[in-house]
Nucleic acid binder design. Structure first.
Length: 667
RNA sequence: GCCCGAGUAGCUCAACGGCCAGAGCACCGCUCUUGUAAAGCGGGGGUUGUGGGUUCGAUUCCCACCUCGGGCUCCA
């Protein structure tokens, strides 16, 4: 065998991964989950090919975690089949952070599909613990189709997998070899493997929730009962994961927007529609102002278009053919049919097509904060992240084919620089290419456009993954994900090439050669939706917006009520300097007023007492820094001005020389 | 839309089928006059999501609908 570090090791013929692990020491023997020989994953009890390059996989690696989660899913299936006679099972793959398994529990006495409840989860988890304690081996076997059919005669979903209707990533035949894994006499699963040697290697798991899921993800098929779980290589990692979930729950924008009085979803309005309260509106306005300013400097021209359009427009654009399901229902008026717009592009195309265009005008970059309405099924609505009425920072760029690459490159820089201002620094790029079954335009155009996108990414030095076949039917695209403060990734920006709409709207320009040409169109949104981006920001900052965005930048508090008028004058001077400041009269004890301001996540609390009235100073209590006393107001204003102008994400500045007048706790 | 779960005061939550549905925060009033994260007292606030049903009696049990949350699907 050749080990990953280049060493070689002699083992008797027929030696297994387990033998290799044993030869490497006790830890390897105890902790190894599978072996990888010449790139092929093997159970530890399978013989290693002579002379192979072999590495052992542990629960500490992604590969190991997948195996461990997959095996835990098997344990879940065994527990469910044991506890629910008549139940059958379908698939149970590992997923990010865990695993799931889908079951069909059959019908109850009244003919309705049986389902799991939350209480069932506890019983199932207890059963799983028993299976883990029993240290059942996973025994692999290769069988032929007939034997497999017999083995799974009572399990129609397994039969369907055997019949190869679809290739599931975790189960199902591959290369004609059907493999099964048996744990006990009672439990055997159809599975490609590999698995951990025995259930004793598992145990750091937790069942999370039960949900409905359609067989094969197809809503015309049977709805199955899915159980989700999380599983890790150690107790510590499981604990860290559960803490991360708690942290995410604390940052949930739906909770924070209510607590901070930013916006709400009144039931009277209808599902998926929000109203913005004054504090939320301040932040939104600042985001929009910044966006407008950047677009203005970036060579965009601003346009406005209405919320409704005649059905004819959406027939021309193809939305009624391809997107009708996502549109609000039509309304009839003056013998015409009108739809709320689900996208801004058709209207921008009308603007382009309104007169003759010259190549000298291109690239023509039309920009609009355009509000659109989309019908989202009620079950899919989710706070600000999925909503029915929202505003896109939408632009459509009309460009000659030969300038596509340059424009994309320019766009990439623009997008990243704007996102940077909001505190995002980690980006992931995804290039989606043609779906061979569903596209418009000629192959040559696609190839050129895709090459242009690729070249732009390369020239800007961005690593990207390629998603084959995931492009929209009208052209290839680049999607940009950002990573937030706690490591979650959000898809925000998208840059999409479109050959289709210029065709449908018969858009043309006159080239330098005097001939008529068709432009290529780029759709691009940077925030995507203002609402969704706002939601991401709330979670990213955990509601503690940086000074330039905070709805209230400073709360000024008098120590006693005879300081209130000085406090008011400080607030007035801050307002005069262009800041958002409030005072709270000294009707309550100072501590209580400070606490309320802190819970409101205000960047600065300014406290003024006798000394300050006399000297024209303030006590500065920043959101997460120490308190400074006797700061001249002008100095504080200069500092805040700096932070706002530089869009600093920190409050109080790392370099501020804090004098310790009582430590400021964090909220 | 479909599966699971939940709807009690503005918010967070109590209340075996049984007296007038309670508490904290928030809000209003009075007292307190405060130097860096919760002063005291009092007050207002509810058709327990909506509509049916079972029952002597329903916040509690059953049915339907609505809304919200977790999923499936789709995507920004």
């Amino acid at each position: 065998m050749v080990l990953p570090d280049g060493q070689t090791r002699e083992l008797p013929a027929g030696a297994t991964g387990a033998d290799l692990a044993a030869s490497l020491g006790r830890r390897a023997a105890n902790d190894a989950l599978i072996a990888v020989a010449d790139g092929e994953q093997l159970d530890l009890n399978r013989p290693l090919p002579d002379g192979a390059s072999v590495s052992l996989v542990f629960g500490s690696s992604d590969e190991g975690l997948e195996v461990l989660r997959h095996s835990t899913a098997h344990v879940l299936a065994q527990a469910v089949l044991r506890l629910y006679p008549g139940a059958t099972f379908s698939i149970g793959p590992p997923i990010t952070d865990g695993f799931y398994y889908d079951f069909d529990l059959g019908l109850d006495d009244s003919g309705r599909a049986r389902t799991f409840s939350d209480e069932d989860l506890e019983a199932i988890e207890a059963e799983m613990r028993a299976i883990v304690a029993a240290r059942q081996p996973f025994i692999r076997a290769e069988v032929d189709r007939a034997a497999a059919g017999e083995l799974f005669a009572a399990h129609p979903y397994k039969i369907e997998i055997l019949d190869g209707e679809a290739d599931d990533p975790a189960s199902g035949p591959e290369g004609g070899v059907i493999t099964t894994y048996r744990n006990t006499v009672e439990f055997v699963d159809l599975c490609r493997g590999p698995h951990v040697p025995d259930t004793g290697r598992l145990g750091h798991f937790k069942l999370m929730r039960v949900a409905g899921a359609y067989w094969r993800g197809d809503e015309d098929r049977q709805m199955l009962q899915r159980i989700y779980g999380t599983a890790w290589g150690s107790k510590g990692e499981l604990a860290v994961h559960l803490e991360r979930l708690e942290e995410a729950a604390k940052r949930d924008h739906r909770r924070l927007v209510t607590e901070l009085d930013l916006l709400s979803f009144p039931a009277e309005l209808g599902g998926g529609l929000a109203v913005w309260h004054p504090k939320g509106a301040v932040i939104r306005k600042l985001m929009e102002d910044y966006s407008r300013d950047r677009h203005s400097r970036g060579g965009y021209e601003f346009v406005y278009t209405p919320h409704l359009a005649n059905a004819q427009l959406f027939e021309t654009s193809g939305h009624l053919d391809f997107y009708a399901d996502g549109m609000y229902p039509p309304m009839e008026m003056d013998n015409g049919i009108y739809y709320p717009k689900p996208m801004n592009c058709p209207m921008h195309c009308l603007i382009f097509g309104q007169r003759q265009r010259s190549y000298r005008e291109l690239p023509l970059r039309l920009f609009e904060l355009g509000t659109v309405y989309r019908y989202e099924r009620s079950g899919t609505l989710h706070g600000l992240m999925r909503i029915r009425g929202f505003t896109q920072d939408d632009s459509h760029i009309y460009v000659p084919p030969e300038q596509l690459g340059d424009e994309i490159e320019r766009l990439l820089d623009f997008v990243l620089s704007v996102l940077n201002a909001f505190g995002f620094e980690d980006f992931e790029f995804k290039l989606s290419t043609q779906d061979p079954d569903k596209y418009v335009g000629d192959d040559e155009g696609w190839e050129r456009a895709t090459a242009a996108l690729r070249a732009a990414l390369d020239r800007r030095g961005h690593d990207y993954m390629e998603a084959e076949g995931e492009a929209a039917f009208y052209g290839p695209k680049i999607d940009i994900d950002v990573t937030d403060a706690i490591g979650r990734s959000w898809q925000l920006s998208t840059i999409q090439v479109d050959f289709n709409l210029p065709e449908r709207f018969n858009l043309r320009y006159t080239g330098a050669d005097g001939e008529v040409h068709r432009p290529i169109m780029i759709h691009r949104a940077l925030f995507g939706s203002i609402e969704r981006f706002f939601g991401v920001l709330v979670e990213h900052y955990a509601g503690a917006f940086p000074p330039w965005l905070a709805p209230t930048q400073a709360v000024v508090l008098g120590v006693r009520d005879d300081h209130d008028s000085f406090a008011s004058s400080v607030a007035a001077q801050l307002a005069e300097a262009g800041f958002r400041a409030e005072t709270v009269p000294a009707d309550d004890p100072l501590g209580a007023r400070i606490r309320r301001a802190k819970l409101g996540k205000v960047p600065y609390v300014l406290v003024v007492g006798d000394d300050d009235v006399a000297a024209g100073t303030v006590g500065v209590n920043p959101r997460s820094q120490k308190v400074r006393r006797d700061v001249p107001l002008a100095e504080f204003i200069a500092q805040l001005t700096d932070e706002v102008d530089s869009k600093a994400t920190d409050v109080g500045g790392a370099s501020s020389t804090a004098t310790d007048a009582g430590s400021a706790e964090q909220g």
